[in-house]
Amino acid sequence: MFRIEKSGPLADKVHELWVNAPHVAHHAQAGQFVIFRIDEKGERIPLTISAVDGDAIRVIFMTVGKTTTHLAALSAGDHIQDIAGPLGKPSDIEKFGTCVLVGGGVGTASLPIIARALKTAGNRVIGIVGARNSDLIILEDEMRGACDEFHLSTDDGSKGFHGFAADLLKQTMAREKVDAVWIIGPTIMMKVTSEVTRPAGIKTFVSLNPVMVDGTGMCGSCRVIVNGETKFACVDGPEFDGHTVDFNTLMQRSRMYQPEEKVSLEKFQEHQCRCGGSHHA
């Protein structure tokens, strides 16, 4: 059992949890993730490790279905039954030169830890964060602190640049030489934004988020097509070269359980209402 140290909202539907998990905290590297299982009846879900402090790790997630809604309802002092990790390959950290980190929505959560690792390796780091509107921007101060330069965009222009993070990336590329790019956000955003760097042949990493079960390479639920080959995102990734990922297959596979996810969430919400909003099942 793993104790929740801190819990709270960061933005609309976006939530952070700090959980005491020494076996993860002591070994976690940038780009890795954990698998959470809340309780005996819970499913296993992957969450990126977005920060480490002593024995505790931070995860940030958007409430999209049953498990994330349940997680958001937990508070300090509550426990998570199982946390496995750290899992996946760490980010490819080396001295590239100038690196641009592009975050979309909750994907921004993955960036500060990568930004700090890249800085330590001697890179100049430019952060770009895009969100639909100003209410959905997370970790702005942390990103400003972790990067040498930082830019914001909103789709509706409510804060920062009016437009997409991809536009800011294009502007940066026009302004200076970029050596490596990380793009982490919704799959469609990673797909579209990877096209920005393709013509220039800039090394581009994306962090994929397929459906996972064990997260240790024993089932292939998370398989993705990269460079025409089947890879398991949990052990071969989750970061891959954005120019070689088959994003369409990834999106198709991610929709596989949509009907079941709806049933599960509805049942949970109905239960929450009956119990007067208490999350203790």
């Binding site: 009846k41 819970g42 499913e43 079960v213 089932c219 049933v263 599960s264 049942k267």
Partner: peptide, 20 residues
């Protein structure tokens, strides 16, 4: 994957258990 979902995660009892 198929067997893990059912045997370990009890997907046969979805939605009582969360794994579909």
């Amino acid at each position: 994957e198929f067997l893990t979902r059912v045997n370990l995660m009890r997907a046969d009892r979805f939605p009582v258990f969360d794994t579909p």
